[in-house]
């Protein structure tokens, strides 16, 4: 891409967000409305609110719990999903049960898991795991089920050993669906991170924001909302980076199918 093209793309990319921020800034500039403080005031409060102790005390623990729960859910979901997807009888046996668990809105798991695991870090990670695991699990089952028969026959003909069959055929073949499940799981994970902290916690972003709201510290509450947005956006960008790297072949394959 030429420098000009890059510039054009950057302009397109940033134009609307810049406009939105500008509009927000101007509309709230002289605001005396208690709930809608001027954006300048919010941004001014950002540094004070988050970067003097709260970052390590609240933000890092939140994100750490999210990542721990999310990664654990990925491992469990992919592991169980490949097992269930490979065995037809097991799949038929478990499908309705899994559909039921997937259909339960994950936040209602918070009160249940509080019974078992109290209100500590373990509970919050458990909540994230138990919410994130379903989309990963069900998509993995779907992906394994849709594996190409011819490819499976090929693997058998060339006498691929079970381990490399799992790595080179099952996992790679199901990876587009696994990624789709992982993407859904990530947004659920962020929701659960916040909810579990709003329910019962002594630290974390969700906890802090609710404290601000209850104490009517409005500009600070706004900084919290912006911070949560930033966390969501950054994690989603990271996810896209990993996904586009891992699924390069899939993007190419789809592209060539569309042309053909």
């Amino acid at each position: 891409m030429s420098a000009l093209g890059l510039l054009r793309r950057a302009a397109l990319l940033l134009a609307v967000p810049a406009l939105l921020v500008a509009a927000w800034w101007l509309l709230t500039a002289g605001s005396t409305d208690f709930f809608w403080p001027p954006l300048s005031q919010i941004l001014g409060a950002f540094d004070d609110t988050w970067f003097h102790g709260r970052f390590t005390r609240d933000v890092l623990p939140s994100v750490g719990r999210l990542l721990a729960g999310y990664l654990l859910a990925l491992v469990i979901g992919v592991g169980l999903g490949t097992a269930i997807g490979s065995v037809r009888t097991l799949r038929a046996l478990l499908e309705p049960v899994l559909e039921f668990f997937r259909a339960i809105p994950p936040p209602v798991l918070v009160p249940i898991l509080m019974l078992f695991a109290g209100i500590g870090t373990g509970m919050k990670i458990l909540v994230i795991v138990s919410g994130c695991v379903w989309p990963v699990l069900l998509n993995t089952v779907e992906g394994v089920r849709a594996l190409d028969e011819v490819l499976g026959d090929t693997a058998r003909c060339y006498r691929m050993r079970p381990h490399s069959r799992y790595v080179h055929l099952v996992l790679r073949g199901a990876s587009p669906q696994i990624a789709a499940g992982a993407r859904q799981a990530l947004s659920i994970g962020i929701i659960l991170m916040v909810i579990s902290e709003m329910f019962a916690a002594g630290d974390g972003v969700g906890f802090t924001i609710v404290q601000f709201q209850r104490g009517f510290a409005i500009p600070q509450m706004w900084t919290g909302i912006i911070l949560l947005g930033l966390i969501g956006v950054v994690l989603s960008l990271l996810f896209q980076l990993v996904e586009s790297w891992a699924l390069r072949w899939y993007t190419g394959l789809r592209g060539s199918e569309r042309e053909g």
């Binding site: 190409d148 028969e149 011819v150 490819l151 026959d153 090929t154 003909c157 060339y158 080179h168 055929l169 790679r172 073949g173 990876s175 072949w249 899939y250 394959l253």
Partner: peptide, 15 residues
């Protein structure tokens, strides 16, 4: 060794 009719489906697209 076996060569299948469905060439597109017997090669590993990620390799």
């Amino acid at each position: 060794a076996v060569v299948f009719q469905e060439y597109g489906r017997s090669l590993f697209p990620w390799m």
